[in-house]
């Protein structure tokens, strides 16, 4: 009986040792992982911060205007290219209230005659204008 108790005790002790060992290394590994993740989070946030600055430099209006002019043959928009469209939306349209009239400003971008694929670009702008129209209707 006493032998059995001792055996049980030893087994229990061995289990305990194994458990302690396992927990200790699990904790160490988790901490290591956590430190690694924390370092990565910090570095990524630092990178994001730097990239925000870089993005600001790259999107300088002057630079964008030069690029648009050189590669897309686009010019700045002036008032003569903007119009107000008054629309009456159909009654059955659930998106809009009955008889509601709304206004929409559509800034359009001027294309020089040398612009390639003029029609396709125009089409693109129509699609954009329509999507903003729908979004406007929802709001």
């Amino acid at each position: 009986m006493q032998n059995k108790s001792l055996l049980l005790g030893y087994t229990f002790l061995a289990l305990l040792c194994v458990s302690v060992f396992k927990v200790k290394y699990a904790v160490q590994s988790a901490r290591q992982e956590l430190r690694q993740e924390a370092r990565e989070i910090y570095e990524i946030s630092e990178d994001i911060h730097l990239l925000e600055g870089e993005w600001a430099v790259l999107t300088h209006p002057n630079r964008l205007q030069k690029l648009a002019k050189t590669y897309l043959k686009m010019d700045a928009v002036d008032g003569s290219r903007v119009t107000v469209v008054h629309l009456r939306v159909p009654e059955k349209n659930n998106l809009m209230h009955e008889k509601e009239e709304f206004q929409l400003s559509l800034p359009m971008i001027e294309f020089s005659d040398a612009a390639p694929h003029r029609s396709s670009r125009s089409g693109f702008h129509i699609v954009r204008a329509l999507s903003s129209l729908l979004l406007g209707a929802r709001s």
């Binding site: 290219r81 119009t83 469209v85 159909p90 129509i126």
Partner: peptide
């Protein structure tokens, strides 16, 4: 307006009456 594009939008897709 120099651009004819703007006229397309109301007449083609939204020519509806309340």
């Amino acid at each position: 307006n120099k651009s004819p594009l703007l006229k397309i939008i109301p007449t083609t897709f939204f020519k509806t009456e309340s």
